[in-house]
Write a protein that binds this DNA or RNA. Structure first.
Lengths: 293, 293
DNA sequence: CCGATCTTCCAAACCGGTTCGATATGTTTT
DNA sequence: AAAACATATCGAACCGGTTTGGAAGATCGG
């Protein structure tokens, strides 16, 4: 059932039916009800492609999957994606997922030229993120999760990583900790930098110094969490507390602590970021983990 | 730059240009080259929406995200999705991800009516999977990963779970194991059933019985792996080997074994399925885990 | 009772591609 | 030389919606 057929059934023009269904005011209320009723009865749904062609909008959000396979399979990204798909669905949009088999930039160019999406969604923003400039150059709208350093203005949405870390450090210093390590994600991520700033300022305020040696950046994996923590525990002045940027880092961190014969809550403290993930929950740790959200 | 403008530039009709670019034979080879060259120079890419409307194909594959949040955030599913997006991109299709905020069936109906996708991709097939019938009734093509029980014929792609388990059991019985537990995923999954069949037949062939008490089904999570293994280790006849249907189950299984003071490789054996995931790798286990792939 | 205004609806153009049927030109066959 | 056929191209219709620019009929003020 398409628009013309529906209109014929009702003895109306395509115009009127289209307007009735799209909520235009110049349609008689009685007619509108009649149209809506018929649309429901005949199970009419506008053809997406036609609608898009006519309006010039694609009605879709775009996400480009991070190219590196390490990030590609990131469970956090998976939850992010699920949330996006859900949100897109709720407001009647599609979510286009593009894998960058031939380079991220090529992916964006393709989407832009083909007018495949209305808005791109960027995650995992870097401190200096070239994608923002590229997209604006391609005339593609974008919304980012996270923000770059600098004064460039664009629509974004972010976690206050800085304050999160600051409050975590405050908690730990309040408990008497002096050597607090920061087990961080990739150094080029804007989130990582924000966390580092928070770490510095919170320690400064207490008159403590943020030792460069207590900062370990790397991939947000269990493995790196383990290695980083082992390295930290081998330092001359062993840290007594660990701030982990992700649950996976924390998982590795806890394993390393256990392997070194230490006990969390007695010998050392651990605080991780990202409570609320379905995949890996703080309650599953032994003991249950303190987290920021 | 659209088709008409490109045609005008070349002094050709839209028809010829379209045909030249789409590889029709009735176009002079010289003309075709001229057209292709111009298309490249002007950065012409056909408008996706228009192409779809004209051809009636959407050019997209559809995936409906599992509704339950436990599956939604499944890292294995995330890798699966990434692979799909990659494959779709390589053959010039889009991947359309739909979250089923209002029920899985409603999602499929919407996609079908709006002609939003050409082919649906179904994962995590159940032993009795109603989706197959639903889609065929909606006139939506589908390809599945996994297959239902019964004789219904449809395009699918599957892992030989049955043989995988059989070979794992053979390996274990060869090592002298007699009580081999099967720590399985959700019982209604077709993969789980296939694994159970493999477990039964392999044990039968050795003259061993598959004790019903040694089969534990449940969500494919670390948590369930832990609980199931604890329960198994509390049985009167403690199993000496564990077959885990997923790496996450195996992770919990190993933790439970450790907590009971046993050591893998000395006291008990563990074999898991799903080598090759980026998220959770067998080498990361201590000791490195034996796996099927 | 007439012109102005409002309400409600419609025909036709448009979005940017694909494809059917026709046409012009060149090449063979008879 | 006429008929038959191939080749290369084009005009126009089509896909299924949205949107523009009227137009008919109802309502109203004077």
């Amino acid at each position: 059932m398409n628009l013309r057929e529906l209109a014929q059934h009702l003895g109306l023009s395509k115009t009127t039916v289209s307007r009735a269904l799209n909520g235009f005011s110049e349609v008689n209320e009685e007619t509108r009800l009649r149209v809506q009723e018929a649309a429901r009865r005949f199970n009419y749904t506008p053809n997406i492609s036609a609608k898009r062609l006519a309006t010039g909008e694609s009605g879709a959000f775009g996400v480009v999957l991070p190219g590196a396979s390490s990030e590609m399979a990131d469970p956090v990204f998976a939850e992010f994606l699920a949330g996006l798909a859900d949100g897109a669905g709720r407001c009647g949009r599609d979510l286009y997922v593009n894998a960058t088999f031939d380079g991220e930039e090529a992916g964006y160019r393709r989407l832009a030229r083909a007018k495949a999406v209305d808005v791109m969604i960027l995650a995992n923003l870097k401190v200096e993120d070239l994608r923002i400039r590229l997209l604006s150059h391609l005339g593609l709208q974008a919304v980012t999760c996270g923000r770059t350093a600098g004064s460039l203005v664009y629509p974004h949405l972010d976690i206050d990583h800085e304050d999160g870390v600051r409050r975590a450090v405050d908690l730990l210093t309040g408990l008497g900790h002096r050597a607090i390590a920061l087990v961080s994600g990739p150094a080029d991520l804007s989130a990582s930098e924000q966390r580092m700033v928070g770490w510095h300022t919170a320690l400064d305020r207490r008159g403590l110094t943020a030792e460069a040696g207590l900062f370990m950046a790397g991939p947000a994996t269990e493995d790196h969490g383990y290695r980083a923590t082992r390295a930290l525990l081998a330092l001359p002045t062993v840290p007594t507390a660990f701030l982990c940027a992700s649950m996976f880092l924390a998982s590795g961190c806890c394993r390393a602590i256990g392997d070194c014969g230490l006990r969390i809550g007695r010998d050392v403290s651990v605080i991780a970021h990202d409570d609320g993930l379905a995949t890996i929950r703080p309650e599953a740790f032994e003991p249950a983990l303190t987290t920021t959200k």
